[in-house]
Amino acid sequence: MKALVATEYQALDRLALADRPMPSAGPGELVLKVEAAALNPLDLALVTGAARELYPVRHPLVVGMDVAGTVEEVGAGVVGYAPGDPVLAFVGQAGAVAEYTVAAPGPRLAPRPPGLDAVRAAALPESGMTAVCLLRAVGLRAGESVLVVGATGGIGLYAVQLAHSLGARVIATATAQDAAYVRELGAADTVDYRERDVVQETLTLVPAGVDVVVDLVNRGDGLAESARAARPGGRLVSPLYGPPDLGREVSPVYIGSFTSEPGDLESLARRAADGTLRVEIGARYPFAEAVTAVTDFATKHIRGKVVVTVP
């Protein structure tokens, strides 16, 4: 089979479509025929080695972790799935930008409901489940206010919608051209991070400070700066690591990787299928242009998810 492969830690433009052995389903595994695969920032860091200390890679690496397709083969001991079933999954370093991949039953694999096409389904697993995990970890509640920094990225677009659905007042960072769209997703207010100081604008909107800051962009001392938008005793949550003390009794919650719970992915898929959760596809590439998809994802401002379709 063909797959997008990194043979070592390397520059993104040195990736190539290459032959890899056809996977087989071991006990407790499924082989999936891939229809679409979505890219995430972690994919870039795995290729270049920027994340090697936290996530070491065994080469050759097949790029991508989010996939939608159909069950091709069912391994021993697997129940509830049969060949031909449409599914979506987070497959980790098994690799998603390929003609076939391997997945395991559990909370990171879900049936794909009618009405949810493969492209939108592939855009859900990592970003959607991370957004769920972040809001759950910080305990966001109805009536609270939340600033989402990085609201137009893959995770951010879901975080805005899920926070709004919980009954929170959402303030989201967005450029002028994206502001109307982010408001449609549920943001009550937007802050143009290119033109304004995000913290100062947020404190103008909520003088006492927001209850929660969800920062999907900054790391290290940058998170301490974002925390100034939180009220004393508020919370900050981030998938990137930062200082243990943010001052003013603002509690930091750092999530290095999402911890999915049973039903999370199924719920996201159902909501996407019935239209109550919008999935934004910022760019779509055919399998033959997978290397371009990766380099564009790394270098261009793309609202939403980048998806590679596989014939």
Rank of each mutant, 00 (worst) to 15 (best):
residue 130 T to I: 01
residue 232 P to A: 10
residue 134 L to H: 07
residue 152 T to K: 02
residue 40 N to M: 05
residue 117 D to E: 14
residue 159 A to V: 15
residue 181 Y to E: 15
residue 23 P to M: 09
residue 149 V to A: 04
residue 297 F to T: 03
residue 83 P to Y: 02
residue 102 V to F: 04
residue 213 V to P: 06
residue 225 E to G: 07
residue 157 L to C: 06
residue 37 A to C: 04
residue 70 T to W: 00
residue 11 A to F: 13
residue 147 L to V: 00
residue 100 Y to W: 12
residue 210 V to M: 06
residue 99 E to W: 12
residue 68 A to H: 00
residue 2 K to F: 15
residue 99 E to R: 00
residue 139 G to E: 13
residue 105 P to C: 10
residue 224 A to G: 10
residue 219 R to H: 10
residue 267 S to K: 13
residue 180 A to V: 15
residue 296 D to L: 15
residue 96 A to M: 07
residue 239 P to T: 04
residue 43 D to P: 14
residue 154 G to S: 01
residue 43 D to E: 09
residue 84 G to Q: 01
residue 169 R to F: 03
residue 188 A to Y: 14
residue 274 D to Y: 09
residue 277 L to E: 03
residue 282 G to N: 03
residue 138 V to F: 07
residue 310 V to S: 07
residue 121 A to H: 07
residue 155 I to M: 05
residue 107 P to H: 01
residue 233 G to A: 00
residue 11 A to T: 07
residue 90 F to A: 08
residue 207 P to N: 14
residue 59 H to W: 04
residue 235 R to K: 08
residue 183 R to N: 13
residue 78 V to A: 04
residue 178 D to S: 13
residue 241 Y to T: 05
residue 189 D to F: 15
residue 112 R to D: 02
residue 19 D to A: 14
residue 228 R to C: 02
residue 74 V to T: 09
residue 87 V to T: 07
residue 164 H to L: 12
residue 141 R to N: 02
residue 123 A to W: 03
residue 268 L to G: 12
residue 219 R to E: 14
residue 270 R to M: 12
residue 3 A to M: 05
residue 70 T to A: 05
residue 287 F to D: 11
residue 200 Q to V: 00
residue 81 Y to F: 15
residue 184 E to I: 07
residue 237 V to F: 05
residue 115 G to I: 09
residue 138 V to R: 04
residue 155 I to E: 07
residue 60 P to L: 01
residue 134 L to S: 01
residue 147 L to R: 15
residue 30 L to D: 14
residue 249 E to R: 06
residue 84 G to H: 08
residue 122 A to G: 00
residue 156 G to M: 04
residue 294 V to D: 02
residue 133 C to M: 09
residue 172 A to E: 05
residue 263 G to S: 11
residue 309 T to I: 09
residue 54 L to M: 12
residue 134 L to A: 00
residue 66 D to I: 00
residue 205 L to M: 06
residue 81 Y to V: 02
residue 199 V to D: 11
residue 128 G to M: 08
residue 59 H to E: 04
residue 196 R to Y: 05
residue 127 S to F: 13
residue 246 L to I: 11
residue 49 G to A: 02
residue 160 V to F: 09
residue 117 D to C: 11
residue 52 R to Q: 13
residue 256 G to D: 10
residue 50 A to H: 06
residue 18 A to F: 07
residue 141 R to W: 08
residue 89 A to T: 03
residue 82 A to T: 04
residue 228 R to E: 02
residue 280 E to T: 14
residue 264 D to W: 07
residue 27 P to A: 15
residue 7 T to L: 07
residue 121 A to C: 11
residue 233 G to C: 12
residue 135 L to Q: 06
residue 242 G to C: 03
residue 217 V to N: 11
residue 281 I to W: 06
residue 63 V to S: 01
residue 206 V to G: 05
residue 31 V to L: 01
residue 243 P to E: 02
residue 231 R to E: 08
residue 151 A to S: 13
residue 277 L to N: 06
residue 39 L to K: 13
residue 283 A to L: 09
residue 51 A to P: 04
residue 158 Y to K: 01
residue 146 V to K: 14
residue 158 Y to E: 00
residue 260 S to M: 06
residue 206 V to Q: 09
residue 80 G to K: 11
residue 70 T to C: 02
residue 9 Y to K: 10
residue 195 E to G: 05
residue 299 T to S: 11
residue 37 A to N: 09
residue 82 A to K: 05
residue 17 L to S: 13
residue 114 P to H: 13
